[in-house]
Every structure is written in C-alpha cells, then in structure tokens.
C-alpha cells in the first residue's frame, strides 16, 4: 500500500530533476528535431518499456491537509541505457511512448560528460516555449481581473 513514509528519500539532484520536468513537457517534434540534429547518435539499449500505465494522482483535503486519491492519469515511461553505460529515465503524462523513450535518451545524454551542449540547447528551447506559453496565459487571465470601484454615497 502506501509506502511513501517508509522510503529513504535521497536529496534530489536539482539539475536533473528540472531537466526531467522539462523533458516531460517536450513535444514530439522538439524531441525528434533534437535527436535528428545529433551529429554523433548514441547506441541505445532498452531497459524497461516504453510502456503506458497509470499513476494515482493525489490531492490534499482542504488543499493542504492529509492526502486523498483524486483519480488516475495515464503515464508513459521508458528506461534506456546508452552504450557508454549511462541510464536514462523518461516519464510523462499521456500515452505517447515515443516521447517517453526520447525523453529517456536525453536524460541519459544529460549525464554523459563532455558533449552536453545538444541536451542543454533542447532544454533551453523547451523552457523558453513553456515560459512563453505560461506568460501568455497569465496575461490573458490578468486581463479578466475585476477592478472594483466604489460609488460614494451621501452628501460629503
């Protein structure tokens, strides 16, 4: 059952955590373009998947209280190993296994010493697109903010 409390959590690697979050939101076109642009394509061996399954999404009672199960979401994931032995994990919402596999490849590439430039360029592209989209949405929402004005009543 719930074993979250029992697990020994190691401190997250903030760089990799952020990179994986960005890869989870990459479009297939972005990933494919980055893969096609790789001059020296690595040899990739599958370790697990790609496969699609479910993650039970949890919420918190009252927004910040104890957790409860809200409902499931489809998730696709893949684990791969490069011939240079780096292991990469890709996991993202939805049923697109191809995206999960490519995300895993770039996760592995991000750990390979030296040649990190193509991965960093991809991450930058994804990050910039997301920032643009989020900014745009925030601006559209802001335009629907109510500005109240108060009518002064009475003589003075």
């Amino acid at each position: 059952m719930m074993d979250a409390k029992l697990k020994q959590e190691s401190p997250p690697d903030p760089v990799r955590k952020k990179a994986m979050g960005l890869l989870a939101r990459a479009t297939l076109d972005e990933l494919k373009a980055a893969w096609d642009a790789l001059v020296d394509k690595p040899e990739v061996h599958p370790v697990r998947g790609p496969e699609t399954g479910l993650v039970m999404v949890r919420g918190r009672i009252g927004g910040g209280g104890d957790p409860f199960n809200l409902g499931e979401a489809t998730v696709s994931r893949a684990t791969i190993r490069l011939s240079t032995s780096e292991i990469g994990h890709g996991q993202l919402l939805g049923t697109d296994k191809q995206r999960a596999r490519l995300a895993a490849i770039f996760d592995a590439l991000s750990q390979r010493d030296g040649d990190k430039a193509p991965v960093e360029a991809l991450l930058r592209r994804i990050g910039e697109r997301l920032a643009r989209e989020e900014r745009r949405k925030a601006e559209e929402t802001a335009a629907t903010r109510v500005d109240f004005f108060t009518m002064v009543r009475g003589d003075d």
């Binding site: 979250a4 697990k7 020994q8 959590e9 190691s10 401190p11 997250p12 690697d13 990799r16 955590k17 994986m20 979050g21 989870a24 939101r25 993650v55 999404v57 919420g59 009252g62 927004g63 809200l70 979401a73 998730v75 684990t79 292991i87 994990h89 996991q91 993202l92 919402l93 939805g94």
Partner: peptide, 25 residues
C-alpha cells in the same frame, strides 16, 4: 498543477507534466 511521481531508481520525485483541476473551498 504539477503532477510529481517519486522515482525509486533516483530517490526523488520528478514532474510528469501538468493537469488542469478545479478546486472549491
């Protein structure tokens, strides 16, 4: 909101992407 899943292989949670939800207090 962001959906994060703990990856036992890495020992920390990573984002899987975002979902839209409605909340009422």
């Amino acid at each position: 909101v962001e959906v994060e899943l703990d990856l036992p292989e890495l020992g920390f949670a990573v984002s899987l992407g975002t979902i839209r939800v409605t909340e009422c207090q």
